[in-house]
Design a protein around this nucleic acid. Sequence first.
DNA 1: AATGAATGAGAGTTCATTCAT
DNA 2: AATGAATGAACTCTCATTCAT
Lengths: 200, 200, 200, 200
Amino acid sequence: MTDPIQQQLIAARKNQILDSAAAVFAEKGFHPTTIRDIAKHAGIADGTIYNYFASKPALLLGIFERMRDRIMAEAAPPPADFDLRAFIRLFLFHPLMALKQDNFALFRVVVSEMLVNDELRALYYEQILQPALVIGEAFFQEHAGRTPEQTRLIIRAISGMILGLILEHTMGDPVLTDQWDQLPDVVTDLIINGLRGEAS
Amino acid sequence: MTDPIQQQLIAARKNQILDSAAAVFAEKGFHPTTIRDIAKHAGIADGTIYNYFASKPALLLGIFERMRDRIMAEAAPPPADFDLRAFIRLFLFHPLMALKQDNFALFRVVVSEMLVNDELRALYYEQILQPALVIGEAFFQEHAGRTPEQTRLIIRAISGMILGLILEHTMGDPVLTDQWDQLPDVVTDLIINGLRGEAS
Amino acid sequence: MTDPIQQQLIAARKNQILDSAAAVFAEKGFHPTTIRDIAKHAGIADGTIYNYFASKPALLLGIFERMRDRIMAEAAPPPADFDLRAFIRLFLFHPLMALKQDNFALFRVVVSEMLVNDELRALYYEQILQPALVIGEAFFQEHAGRTPEQTRLIIRAISGMILGLILEHTMGDPVLTDQWDQLPDVVTDLIINGLRGEAS
Amino acid sequence: MTDPIQQQLIAARKNQILDSAAAVFAEKGFHPTTIRDIAKHAGIADGTIYNYFASKPALLLGIFERMRDRIMAEAAPPPADFDLRAFIRLFLFHPLMALKQDNFALFRVVVSEMLVNDELRALYYEQILQPALVIGEAFFQEHAGRTPEQTRLIIRAISGMILGLILEHTMGDPVLTDQWDQLPDVVTDLIINGLRGEAS
DNA sequence: AATGAATGAGAGTTCATTCAT
DNA sequence: AATGAATGAACTCTCATTCAT
C-alpha cells in the first residue's frame, strides 16, 4: 500500500486515464462521451478505469484537480512590492494564458459541467475561485482606496471578466480568437484607468 | 392552420410545456431531467410534449428563444444622447438585473448546455451576444477615445464581466448574492474611472 | 341506417381511405406506414379513419377484400367445354396478369402480412385459394387421367407455381421482369407437355 | 481478437441468441416479437443481445444467413451424369424437404420480412435464388431442348413452384400437410412429362 | 491488476387509438 | 360526420457499472 513503486505505477495509470478522458471530453463533451470511448482512447479495458476511478463524474473531478494543481503551480504568490499593473498581469492573466489553445475545449467542458454539478462547483469555488478572490481582495484593499465592500465587488468583477472572456472566446468570437494576445495589455489598462483613462 | 384561436391554444400549450421544462431543468439540470419529469410537472402525457417539440434539446432551444425574446424586449436601444454612465447602466445591467432570482438557475442550465451544444451556442452568439457587441462597439467608439481595435476588446471585456459575474453568482458566492444590487454602481464606476479613479 | 345515399357516401369514403392505404402500404410497407401517413394521403384527419375501419390491420383486410372482389369479378368460371390449354390460360393467368404493374407492390405487402397474420391468411385460404383449388381439381380430374390424390397435389403445384412466380418477380428478378408477358405460353406448355414435350 | 477460444465462445453465444430469436420469431412473428422476448427465451439480459447483434433486423439477417449456410451445405452440386429426374429430385427437393416441420414457421417469417425488407430480399436473391437459377439453367439447357429464353423462364417457373408450395403449406392447406412426402414424385413427374404424360 | 462480457434500469421517442368538440 | 390534440403503453437501444476469470 505504501510501496513507492506501486504508488508510482498507480499514479501513472491514473494520469494515462485522465489524459484520455480529457482528450475525449474535450472533443465530444462530457455526456456524449462513453466510458468505452475513453478506454479505447487509452488502449485499456472498460473495467480497468473503475479500478482507478469510482465513476464517470469522478473522472471529471480528477481532470479538474489536475487543472487546479497546474494553475496553482503556475500562479506564484505575488511579491509584496508589486505595483498594481504587475499584480494584475501576473495574478489574473498568467493562468488565463496558460489555458490558451488546447485547454480551452476542455475548460469549456469542465465549466459546463461545473455549472450543473454541485460537487464540482463547490470544489471550484473553494479551491480556485475563493482563494484567488481572497488574495486579490487583500492586495487591492491596500493599493486601491476603496471601502472593503467596494473592493470585494471589484475583485469579483475583475475575476468575472476573466472567466467571461474565456467563455466568449470558446463561443468562437473571432475578435477574441484573433487578438487574444493583446488582451492583457488592454484589459489591465481598462481596469487601472477605466474608459476615460489615457491609453498607455 | 391560420385559425387564430388554434394558434393561441397552441402557443399556450407550448408555453405551458416550456414553463414546466424550465422549472424542472432549473431544478435538476438538463441531462438528469427526463421527458417524463417535465410531463408530470405539466400534468400532461409524455407523448403530448412531442406534439409541440421535436426533441428534448428542442425544449431547451424553446426556452432559450423565450429568454432571448424577453431580454430583447427589455433591452431598449439606448437614446443617442445618453452619457456613458447611463448607457452602461441601461445597456448592460438592465438585462442582467432581469435575470435576478428565479431565472438564475435556469440561466445556469442554459449556459451549461450552450457551452457544449453547437446549435445553442451559435444561436446565443448570433442572436444575443453579437448584436449586443455591435451596439456597444458603436457607442464606445464614439464616447471613449480608443482605437477601433482596442474598443472591440474593451467591449468584450465588459460584456464578459457581466457574464462572469452572473456565473460567479450562480456558484454561490455569498458576497455577490448579498450585494448584487450594488453591483451596477460599483461596476459602472470601475469601468469608467478604473481602479485609480475617484469613486463617485 | 338503410338510407341509400348515406350508404353510398360511406362506401365512397371507405374506398377513398382504402385507396390511400393501398398507395402508402405499397410504397412503404404495412408496418412502417402510420395511420397519419394514410390520413395525410387521403387529406382527412387521423380520427376519421376510425369511423370507417376498426384498426390498422382492418385496413389491410379491407384492401384484401377489394382485391378478392376484383379477382373474382375477372376470373369468370370456365366454360365446361374448354380444353386444357384454354382453361389454364384463363383460370390461372388472368388474375396473374391483372396484378401486373401497379398492383405488384401492394400484393407483396399483402402476402407478407398474410404469412404472419392468421386472420388474413385464413381469409385468403378460404376465399381465394381454396375455391380456386376446388374448381381446378374438378376440371383437372376430368381432363387429366390421374388419381384424385395426384390431382390434388398437381393442382397445388400449379397454383403454387403462379404464386411463386409472382414473388420471384417482386424480388426483382430481371428475367421475369422483362419477359413476364411470355410466361403464360411457356408455362402453359410446360404444364401440359412437361420438359420433354415438344415446344409449341 | 484472433483467440480461437474467444471466437468459439462468441460463436456459441451468437448461436444461442439466434436459436432463441428463431424460436420466438417462428412463434410470434417478427414485428410482434420484442427484444425482451428473445432475451427471456435465451435466459440472458436484453443488453447482451446488442453485444452480438447490432439491431433487431440484424437478428433476422443472422437467422437468414444460418438458413442459407445449411441449405448450401445440403445442396450438393449435382453430378454431371445425372439424368433429369435425379437432378430435379436432388436439386429442388432436397432443400425443400430439409425445411420440413420445425423450420416452416420460421421460413414463413423470413419470407414475410423478405418481401418487405430490401436488404434481406437482395441477400436472398443474390445468395440463394440466383445461384440456384444459374445452376438449373445450365443443366436444363443441356437436357431439355428449348431455347435459352424458354429455359430461363422454365427454371423460374419450377423454382417458383417450390417456393409457392412451401407457402401454400404454411397457409395450412391440409392436402399439402398430409401428403407432403409424396410431392417429390408427383411434381417431378409433372415437370418431366406434363399433365398428358403417362404417370410413372 | 486487467479484462470485457454481462447486466438491466432507464432513456427518448413513436404511434394506434380515443373522444370532447 | 369530422376533427386532431391527447393519451400512455410499449418499443428499441444505450451505457455506466459489476465481477468472474
